[in-house]
Design a protein around this nucleic acid. Structure first.
Lengths: 177, 177
DNA sequence: GGAGATTACTTCGCACACGAAACATCTCCC
DNA sequence: GGGAGATGTTTCGTGTGCGAAGTAATCTCC
């Protein structure tokens, strides 16, 4: 993935508006937390011979036992075409099974093999847990503040994206004079 | 659209400790904001026939005129082996030049071609505009809260990483079994 | 009940992204 | 001056990550 974009954002972000506290720190912190979490996940997964996404898949499958490929894609925030590849490799390693649904024969259910199960229960730490640990060190007040503002922020971005107000793949960005 | 699935994820991840608010929303928001920012950058770059990293490279080269491959790697936070590929493709497109340094013949200088220059000066829109817009919509208090807590959080993670308390790539926890 | 839209998944082609190893060059130190 | 080691870049292999196009199954609506 492109960590490259990080620097792009950082360098361009270095011009804060004046009525607001400079938000550089916020953007930088978000980028840092993201990349660090990826590094940590990768390192953790590597200890078990897995990649980051593979660990994510295993941990998603563990509680439910079985998920459709689309559910899995949504949960690990990747596209179906990406997850197809990940599952391919995990199947080759004997970690998961593919099984077609009988109710809806378009659907493919992914489930852990015994080997996958064993591995899953070996790995007790979830990547998210690292965040949880650190978040747990925050005061309850801070934690609440963080959650409130951050989720509001994400929600707002989501709205703007859905409005098409942002230059995504399809849309055109317009300048505001 | 995906609101149905939303509740499913929530229930799956709803293992918050009781003394703290459920922090998975925070992780969720961070992940979302990061991936969305990548999408937006990509979309922007795409309007000029570039990829995200290529846009980053062009924007880094524009002020300086020329950078060694290592300098470029450092600036866009990727490894040399990654940037080699990016520069390969950009060279093929006629956007940049490779030139060996005469002082140190190990070094390769990357510079913009005329075509690359022209493109660079065409692109004035900042990908991060979106963040600024949305952050600007927050109340001053919210913004301050966000910055305070988030930077504290990042700092704490940084500390833990430097302590080696977290499993990362290189720091292979030696099994002292 | 059947044509056309929709959905679930796969395939393909491309572009990162990284580590390990190969390679050329430079530096240091004797 | 010359060998050992460090440095800068590339090559190679693997694994994401995505969009577009393809295929099969289901759904919708007349």
């Amino acid at each position: 993935m492109s960590d490259v974009v990080n620097s792009e954002l950082e360098s361009l972000m270095a011009q804060a508006t004046e009525d607001q506290p400079d938000m550089d720190g916020v953007v930088e912190a978000i980028l840092y937390l993201y990349t660090e979490s990826r590094r940590i996940t990768k390192g953790l997964a590597g200890q078990y011979g897995l990649t980051g996404p593979q660990l994510a898949v295993i941990k998603m499958l563990e509680p439910k036992g079985q998920l459709s490929l689309s559910e899995l894609s949504w949960k690990i925030r990747a596209k179906n075409s990406t997850v197809t590849g990940i599952v391919d490799r995990m199947e080759r390693e004997g970690l998961v099974h593919r099984r077609r649904s009988k109710q809806d024969r378009r659907v493919v259910h992914i489930s852990l093999t015994e080997k996958g199960q064993a591995l899953a229960s070996d790995i007790t730490i979830e990547p998210v847990q690292i965040f949880r640990t650190v978040l747990g060190e925050l005061s309850t007040r801070d934690a609440r503040d963080l959650k409130r503002v951050l989720t509001r922020l994400a929600q707002r971005v989501r709205e703007l994206v859905e409005e098409g107000a942002l230059p995504t793949d399809g849309g055109l960005g317009e300048e505001d004079g």
